[in-house]
């Protein structure tokens, strides 16, 4: 059960963000995230988001936007709440009893946590790829076809075949598996499994894809393939990716958000974050002083 508190948040940028800050901030968390957390016409926007696990607060007052067809990377040390935040975006946290999300999260202006928002419909629009490749113990075909079948996206077998083929092609897996669609998806290699999971996620044509450390269990070659794929997918989809690898964030994302112990410290153009971080904590992290 998710308790919810709607706050009247002015969608305009908070005053502090307008000022250009020349000197580096101190190590205390900034009142508002430094950099450019908000964009002009966001696909998704999060305002004053707090997340609690029981008594423990995991996310503190996060304000951030995700633009249309943008790849936003979330980085930060372990336990900083980036995965928790990502799972709040498509209400995956609903399954955790003790989890409570407050604040306002919207998708195309619709409140995600509103009573009339159906979490099942939401997850069809906001797909997710997980850290560990988790194909169903079914055939490759059925793995991809599962979502479309659930949502009744194909009325005929030929239509379903087409969806499966396009999804696998987009996930860069079609040529590798087209001759063995009836074999179990669990028999593929780790990297192929993860691309299968991506194919499964895009088979229902979501608007946003959330990726929770999609490459952390993969070798560098498989990682490179997934990263290429992300660049390709960003033409059609909005992507939020959590990653532990700063190089990966630098390679794939347009903007980067740095989380620290539940606080969103800094959001900016990826290049800026990695070349000229505005906040001391961000700088410390990207230069490898901790994390």
């Amino acid at each position: 059960m998710v308790n919810r508190m709607v706050m009247n948040v002015a969608i305009d940028m908070p005053a502090g963000l307008m000022e250009t800050e020349n000197e580096k901030n101190t190590s205390v968390y900034p009142e508002v995230s430094v950099g450019v957390p908000l964009v002009a016409s966001p696909k998704m926007s999060m305002r004053n988001v707090d997340v609690f696990y029981g008594e423990k607060q995991a996310i503190y007052n996060v304000n951030v936007d995700i633009g249309q067809n943008e790849v936003i990377a979330m980085i930060g040390p372990s336990g900083c709440g980036k995965s928790t935040f990502l799972r709040s975006i498509n209400r995956m946290n609903d399954t955790v009893d003790s989890c409570k999300v407050t604040g306002q999260l919207t998708l195309d202006g619709e409140d995600i946590y509103a009573a009339k928002m159906d979490p099942v419909a939401l997850r069809a629009r906001v797909g997710m790829v997980f850290q560990k490749p988790n194909p169903f113990p079914k055939t490759i075909y059925d793995n991809v076809a599962y979502g479309p079948r659930l949502h009744g996206l194909a009325s005929r077998r030929a239509e379903l075949d087409e969806i499966v083929e396009t999804s696998l092609t987009r996930a860069g897996l079609w040529t590798e598996v087209k001759d063995r669609l009836d074999q179990p998806g669990t028999g593929l290699s780790g990297g192929q499994q993860q691309r299968l999971c991506i194919a499964r996620a895009i088979a229902i044509s979501p608007e946003v894809i959330l990726m929770d450390e999609p490459c952390s269990a993969l070798d560098p070659i498989a990682t490179a393939k997934i990263e290429e794929l992300i660049a390709e997918l960003s033409k059609n989809y909005t992507i939020a990716i959590v990653t532990h690898s700063m190089q990966q964030a630098a390679r794939v994302s347009h903007r980067t958000a740095y989380f620290h112990l539940g606080h969103l410290v800094e959001v900016n153009e990826t290049e800026k974050v990695f070349t000229a971080p505005e906040h001391q904590l961000t700088e410390a992290y990207i230069t490898g002083r901790f994390g």
Binding site: N90, R123, F136, G147, L150, I204
Partner: peptide, 27 residues
């Protein structure tokens, strides 16, 4: 039943009942 299977099913928009019937129960 590994939670990752549940996550996967929820992630593609299966309802709680579908998660149980399609994935948890067979496994």
């Amino acid at each position: 039943v590994p939670p990752s299977i549940r996550d996967a099913a929820i992630g593609v928009g299966a309802s709680p009942m579908q998660v149980v019937l399609h994935h948890v129960l067979p496994l």
